[in-house]
Design a protein around this nucleic acid. Structure first.
Length: 678
DNA sequence: GGGCCTCGAGATCA
DNA sequence: CTCGAGGCCC
């Protein structure tokens, strides 16, 4: 390092600063200060200095934008604060309902000053969500959304995106996670496709997929040639206190050098303000120059956002108002029947390929036989197909005017198309089910596919084609058998060479100690989804205790009612289900009890009661913190109470908690649960 | 559900 | 070299 002359160090620093300014002017402000040639000359000079003195080549240097070396794989990244999804609305009524719910909650909490709620409005860009992590102002990591908790490291590619600063302004906080959307403009997309076609390479079907594909390149040099853009719309972890409102925080992000789509933002009052914004954006949608699939509304006041809290995976303070789905007409070629994990028989429409909503649709669900009858859809009909952004394509109705004489009405079968068991449809229910249970190969396969899936045990490399083979060859009957598979025997299956087999064997071994909630969810108990599985894991701590639970204990779990409870009891009553679990435990699978402390701040499904005087917090502050983490605060202790937080001079509530056997913690205990500050 | 990228199996060719 | 499978994005 000492060999680098001081003037080179200085010159490199000046060049870097100048280049970052030009980048900002060009990409963020869309107002270049210098010509491309001048820019190239500057970057060339910096490049020369850096190659002469490699010690000066820092990862945040503008020269590194063109792309470093290819990586071997996308590493998982755990988000410090989860990346949530948003609730959706398609109709005005849903927006009115959202506003009413918000207003009511805030009025109840005394946080509504004035007659209407103040909302922040923005465009919902059609790209992919990204989280950028800055430490001491330097971009250190970029990750995709993933399942919201854990995404993939795409730092190498994100560094090549011009509008994403590699270094923030000097007053940047110690740590800052910025959330935003990576996307591609329509003109850039067209130009890219033209260039791709000229080179004889594949053209992309729409800007979103082009952007997504560009970010999933192993070699950042490819990404560097793709015209990707970025707008910040939110944040995760931040080491400094934030301004009190959403718009102010975004202004601050903008001052730090991040691109924020301020020209399209609006602050409005109440539901009518939201709808007016929606209409105004809708009218200008085609002239924006980039794809959007709707608009997003957020309660502007951050304290109010905290009060509103979260449901499952989405904040209650925000709503995505999506544009109406696109429609198209095509021919219904046939109706296939699919047998699901629970035996549900779903009719699926096979369609003549048709381009709608940015993709080519060939399949669409028809839900159930009543829906087919209600819509009077017949095989051979010309039908209207609907598809909106991320919504699964749907057959809306037949075009009766175009109905020929060759149409055929759909007839539900009476036997399972896979195992020939009787099909039952309980009165009052819409779905017909195969009664074969795990005797039915389709149900066995589907339950295994479910168990291996990303939200359940997340066994990479165990896809549906392989499961199909394993079940057909009778090698695998139940989940427990999966853990007995060796690399050696796996290598004997179709499309499984020694490499794939070893990878899968490793993936299976790596999931031998799954979190209990994933284990429970993987079992595929009817009515037990991810969030119920989590509640059950928290309440019972071990699979043995869950299996031994009676109706009363199950009903004491938050959000578990009679239907869910009896479904769980019925599941564990069946000996083959118990055998599967025993087999799993015998195979060395050890579900891990949930850890509530240690930095985890997800209280969904937990109810707290505060009593007595806490040493450092007012009751109000403690309640705020609990609700911000997704928990509920209640006034009285019952069996459903998860924790009683007791301070000094706690009275009858503490006594009642003790008599009911409810866990009692003090303020320090609560802070541990909330995840003590890092 | 559809589109994208990557990995690796398996075919093909030299 | 091609292409199917799997994983990930919306």
């Amino acid at each position: 390092m000492s060999e680098v002359p001081g003037d080179a160090v200085e010159r490199a620093q000046v060049l870097r600063q100048t280049l970052e300014q030009h980048n900002h002017a060009y990409y963020v402000l869309d107002a270049p200060i210098v010509s491309d040639a001048e820019y190239d000359q500057l970057i060339g000079e910096l490049e020369a200095i850096e190659s002469q003195y490699p010690a000066l080549r820092t990862p945040d240097s503008p020269t590194q934008r063109v792309g470093g070396t290819a990586i071997a794989a996308f590493e998982p990244v755990r988000h410090a604060v989860p990346m949530l999804s948003l609730g959706n609305a398609f109709e005005d009524e849903q927006v009115l309902a959202f506003d009413q719910r918000v207003a009511q909650t805030l009025r109840g909490a005394g946080q509504l000053n004035g007659p209407e709620v103040a909302y922040f409005c923005e465009l919902k860009l059609d790209g992919l969500a990204i989280s950028l992590r800055y430490e001491r102002g330097v971009l250190v990591q970029a990750a995709t959304r993933g399942d919201g908790q854990t995404g993939e490291d795409v730092t190498h590619n994100v560094r090549t995106i011009g509008s994403i600063p590699r270094r923030l302004a000097a007053h940047a906080p110690q740590t800052l996670e910025v959330r935003g959307e990576v996307f591609m403009g329509q003109a850039d997309f067209e130009a890219l496709n033209q260039a791709q076609a000229q080179r004889g390479e594949k053209v992309f079907v729409n800007p979103r997929n082009a952007a997504a594909g560009s970010l999933r390149q192993l070699d950042p040099k490819v990404t560097a040639t793709r015209p990707l853009r970025f707008f910040a719309y939110g944040w995760g972890q931040c080491s400094e206190p934030l301004a009190p409102t959403h718009d102010q925080v975004l202004d601050w992000l903008s001052c730090l050098g991040l691109p924020v789509n301020q020209a399209e933002h609006a602050l409005v009052q109440g539901a009518q303000g939201l709808l007016a914004y929606y209409r105004e954006v809708q009218a200008r949608r085609s002239s924006l120059g980039y794809d959007i699939d709707g608009v997003v509304y957020k309660v502007n006041d951050l304290a109010a956002q905290k009060t509103l809290g979260f449901v499952a995976k989405a904040p209650r303070f925000a709503l995505a108002h999506k544009f109406a789905a696109e429609l198209a007409q095509t021919k219904l070629l046939g109706i296939d029947l699919q047998v699901g994990r629970t035996g549900a028989i779903t009719p699926v429409a096979r369609l003549a390929p048709v381009f709608v909503g940015g993709v080519t649709v060939t399949n669409a669900t028809l839900h159930n036989e009543d829906e087919i009858a209600r819509k009077d859809v017949r095989i051979g009909d010309t039908v209207v197909v609907r598809r909106a952004g991320d919504v699964i394509p749907e057959v809306v109705e037949p075009v009766l005017a175009l109905r020929g004489s060759e149409t055929k009405a759909f007839q539900m079968v009476s036997q399972c198309p896979v195992c020939a068991s009787a099909i039952e449809r309980p009165p009052g229910e819409a779905v017909a089910r195969c009664t074969g249970g795990l005797f039915c190969a389709a149900q066995r396969k589907q339950s295994l596919i479910h168990a291996a899936s990303r939200n359940a045990l997340d066994i990479e490399g165990l896809g549906d084609k392989l499961i199909e083979q394993l079940v057909d060859k009778a090698r695998v009957q139940s989940l427990a058998d999966i853990y007995g598979l060796t690399a050696q025997e796996l290598a004997g299956y179709e499309r499984m060479g020694s490499k794939s087999a070893q990878n899968l064997a490793n993936a299976i071994a790596a999931k031998r100690e799954p979190p209990l909630e994933r284990f429970i969810y993987a079992l595929g108990i009817r009515h037990v989804g991810q969030s119920t599985a989590r509640d059950l894991a928290r309440s019972f701590k071990t699979i043995e205790q869950l299996m031994a639970a009676n109706q009363e204990q199950l009903l004491a779990v938050p959000d578990v009612g009679p239907v869910v409870a009896s479904s769980i009891l019925r599941f564990f009553e069946q000996s083959h289900n118990r055998e599967v679990i025993e087999g799993l435990l015998a195979a060395g699978v050890k579900p891990q009890a949930p850890e509530l402390g240690r930095g985890q701040s997800d209280f969904a499904g937990l109810t707290f009661v505060l009593t007595g005087t806490l040493p450092n917090w007012t009751r109000e502050q403690a309640a705020q913190a609990i609700m911000a983490a997704g928990g509920k605060v209640s006034g009285s202790v019952s069996k459903k109470t998860s924790y009683v937080v007791a301070g000094e001079d706690a009275g009858s509530k503490l006594a009642r908690a003790q008599s009911l056997g409810v866990a009692v913690i003090d303020e320090a205990g609560l802070q541990r649960l909330l995840g003590a500050p890092e």
